[in-house]
């Protein structure tokens, strides 16, 4: 019994590492997002030939500047997509760990544990039920947050095509920064239960 709990704790440690990677990707995505949004905010200005002042003397300058900015935007979108791929990688590692850990309590095998065993607590150690639900909550958080990020990113790409509604940009960016599906306190709480003996 104790050894199963230990194995679960190992899973939680590995997920913690993955969450560290998630944070790295998060800060990368935020900087990519803000680079893209500052270009999108400029697009309206660039499209208006009245804003070119003395540069108007040069034929074709508006098109050239616009083309350059669109190229950079394209490049940023490509790198955002790469970052999203990596997010997906983190999510699937967490998913796999949760799936595998179902087998620890003998999913469907002869060693099926009873409900009583699942709730059994030894000292400060977490119950198996704590472990199982904790893992599922973490999995759920990251899955939902990944889906949210996907929709934020696609909204950003839509805005690039219709720069009129740029007011939404800062709201989108805030949503990205907040990560509403991964509340820090709740994550903290789960880890405090799982590693209660180490904290005390």
């Amino acid at each position: 019994m104790e050894s199963i709990v230990k194995k679960y704790q190992q899973r939680f440690r590995r997920i913690k590492d993955e969450m560290g990677r998630w944070e790295e990707l998060q800060s990368r995505l935020i900087s990519q997002f803000s680079n893209a949004s500052s270009i999108i905010q400029r697009l309206q200005l660039i499209l208006d030939s009245r804003n070119y002042g003395v540069l108007k003397s040069i034929e074709g300058i508006e098109d050239a500047v616009l083309r350059k900015q669109m190229d950079s935007l394209q490049a940023i979108f490509l790198s955002i997509n790469k970052t999203m791929e990596e997010f997906r990688g983190v999510v699937s590692i967490i998913e796999k760990m949760v799936r595998d850990s179902g087998q620890l309590v003998g999913g469907g095998s002869a060693k099926q544990l009873t409900a009583k065993q699942l709730k059994q607590q030894i000292g400060l150690k977490p119950t198996l039920e704590d472990c199982l639900s904790g893992l599922r909550i973490l999995e759920d958080m990251h899955q939902s947050e990944y889906r949210l990020k996907l929709s934020v990113v696609s909204a950003l790409q839509d805005l690039a095509l219709k720069p009129k509604s740029i007011g939404d940009l800062s709201a989108l960016q805030q949503l990205l920064i907040d990560q509403p599906n991964i509340p820090r306190e709740e994550v903290q709480c789960i880890y405090e239960i799982i590693f209660a003996e180490e904290i005390s």
Binding site: L45, G53, L55
Partner: peptide, 23 residues
Amino acid sequence: IQYKQQKDSDTLQVYITTWMVEV
């Protein structure tokens, strides 16, 4: 053609952008 009038912030921002993108 140089304009005598004051430059507005939009034009100045286009100048900076043009500087940056190196067409």
